[in-house]
Design a protein around this nucleic acid. Structure first.
Length: 523
RNA sequence: GGCGCUUUCGUCUAGCGGCUAGGACACAUGCCUCUCACGCAUGGAACACGGGUUCGAUUCCCGUAGGCGCUACCA
């Protein structure tokens, strides 16, 4: 059993864009598989055709392509255990429900939705909860209460039916969870779960999941904590099928919670606080609504991976920046935390910055050029990279629910609001600007004229070339020109080192901006 | 309501009977400085509560309270 090759799966439902919590679940499965040299399977759980959303499957695939998470088999990857789309496995499931039926582990139920609702309302009126189980099944219309001929007649005549799992009450069912240890639930609180649906003649999640995991030889089920309550049911199903000896090990991961307030992370939180909850941008085909994605928002895939990996798990040391290879090496299910993790998107900014800063300036350039183009500014990648090198250490103001705050540049996009003056000369000066008031004195115009004339003599307008001449002039004149010079070239109190900016603009442009400022700021 | 999971700085977490309870994000201050910064340094900040067990509990057990999840012919 332990010598079996590790096989894990990620099995989403194609009901829309993948939630970021789902991405983390997939990542943990991937890390686990790679660490053990095992297989990672991609299965599509589309047994609820009413919730099927076109394009969702392709979206999920694209997400993992972007993140660099690779599957070994599954939908679109091939493999010996297919088909990997549950809707294509209907005939297979049929055989297995029949097996349960034949062996008395399951039974037919003919109760209509109306009948069940009536029972629920009835119970509710008495402050109770109706549950289809040992205590109530004898009052319902099913193959346990009906005469055998009657059941056969109903089946023969094509009456709608579901197949329910027959739960024997009064038994403590244990689940051995890798993260949580022994979890025990008494079977009396479980209901006779529907295994086969009447409406579409397809299995429910529970049945399909167990059959598939068994047939696909899955060794470890790593999934969200929302499945923990039904894990005992799954154990019982393995038992009913006689597969208990090859039952996978379970690991139920803590959930991702809202950054503030109560409850689990939802799409609304992202909209409200301004961060994506989906890996890629999603266009809702029905409403036309667009939801932002990590990729389109400028996150680097390595940063998203690193950030997500450490939400609910950490390797123990002080190192927080970890490559995929390091994550694979250090990952440990037993060290996953048990309690839900608040989604700290601000830390996500930091991760992105760390990875962005690791890249050469030239690698920022293509994105930056595109962003500048959106603003109507044409420039080259070389020029863009120069700006990046001068500006990437700056901070940007951003909006939060508590008002504007400042943070380090974490995205290529952050550069733009700080870089306009590299490409567009000041056309006016705000007389109220504190920096200008403080640094433009009556004698300043004359000092700037002197500097202008000094600069005009320089042939080598590189940083070094300017420095050699201007530093000497500063030395002998005693004038500190930088802040006023900044006013001339930038128009306000921000920007990079003046020599760097001046070299970037070039002599002609620098002189033009200085002349304009001296003229305009005459006072 | 029932059942289950869970509880260390604001947040993510380290800790696996004896520690000045560590790190990171965020926050504050100082240094640096040609603006805003980066960087560097420093600082504030936590074991939910009550019982046990023990020579000794953040750590083990039991309660209480809080948080989260499940309670569909959805996954």
């Amino acid at each position: 059993m332990n010598s079996m090759k590790v096989r894990v799966r990620f099995a989403p439902s194609p009901t829309g864009p993948l939630h970021i919590g789902g991405v983390r679940t997939a990542l943990y499965n991937y890390l686990f598989a790679r660490q053990h040299g095992g297989d990672f399977i991609f299965r599509i759980e589309d047994t609820d055709r009413t919730r099927f959303v076109p394009g969702a499957e392709e979206y999920i695939l694209e997400t993992f392509r972007w993140l660099g998470i690779q599957f070994d088999e599954g939908v679109s990857f091939g493999g010996d255990h297919g088909p990997y789309r549950q809707s294509e496995r209907k005939e297979l499931y049929k055989v297995y429900v029949q097996q349960l039926l034949d062996q008395g582990w399951a039974y037919y139920a003919f109760d209509t939705a109306e009948e069940l609702n009536a029972r629920r309302e009835e119970a509710e009126a008495q402050g109770e909860k109706f549950q289809y189980d040992a205590s109530t099944r004898s009052q319902m219309r099913n193959s346990l209460t009906l005469a055998q001929e009657e059941t056969e007649r109903l089946l023969q005549e094509g009456h709608p039916y579901v197949v329910r799992f027959l739960i024997q009450p009064g038994e403590d069912v244990h689940v051995d969870d890798i993260i949580r240890g022994d979890v025990c639930i008494n079977s009396s609180i479980l209901d006779d779960k529907v295994l086969w649906k009447s409406a579409d003649q397809l299995p429910t999640y529970h049945l399909a999941n167990i059959v598939d995991d068994h047939l696909m030889e899955v060794t470890h089920v790593i999934r969200g904590e929302e499945w923990l309550p039904s894990a005992p049911l799954h154990v019982l199903l393995y038992r009913a099928f006689g597969w208990e000896d090859t039952m996978p090990r379970f690991a139920h991961l803590p959930l991702l919670l809202k950054p503030d307030g109560k409850g689990k992370l939802s799409k609304r939180d992202g909209d409200r606080l301004g961060f994506p909850v989906f890996p890629l941008e999603w266009h809702n085909p029905e409403t036309g609504e667009v939801s932002s994605g990590y990729r389109e928002s400028g996150y680097l895939p390595e940063a998203v991976i690193n950030f997500l990996a450490l939400l609910g798990w950490n390797p123990g040391g002080d190192q927080e920046i970890l490559s995929m290879d390091e994550l694979i090496e250090k990952f440990n299910l037993e060290k996953c935390s048990k309690n839900g993790a608040r989604f700290d998107y601000v830390k996500g900014f930091w991760f992105n910055r760390e990875y962005l800063l690791q890249r050469p300036d030239a690698e920022w350039a293509p994105d930056f050029v595109r962003i500048l183009a959106e603003q109507g500014i044409e420039t080259t990648e070389e020029k863009a990279a120069e700006v990046v090198s001068m500006m990437k250490a700056k901070v940007i103001e951003y909006q939060t629910k508590d008002g504007p705050k400042k943070r380090n540049i974490s995205f290529v996009r952050d550069l733009w609001p700080l870089c306009r003056f590299f490409f567009v000369a000041p056309t006016a000066f705000d007389p109220e600007d504190k920096f200008i008031r403080k640094n433009w004195k009556p004698e300043t115009a004359d000092e700037m004229r002197q500097l202008r004339d000094v600069l005009a003599t320089i042939d080598d307008f590189s940083v070094e070339g300017q420095k050699a001449v201007v530093d000497a002039w500063v030395e002998q004149s005693g004038i500190k020109p930088w802040n006023a010079w900044r006013v001339c070239l930038v128009g306000e109190g921000q920007g990079p080192d003046m020599y760097g900016l001046s070299a970037f603009l070039g002599k002609e442009e620098v002189l033009r901006r200085m002349d304009f400022a001296i003229q305009t700021l005459k006072l």
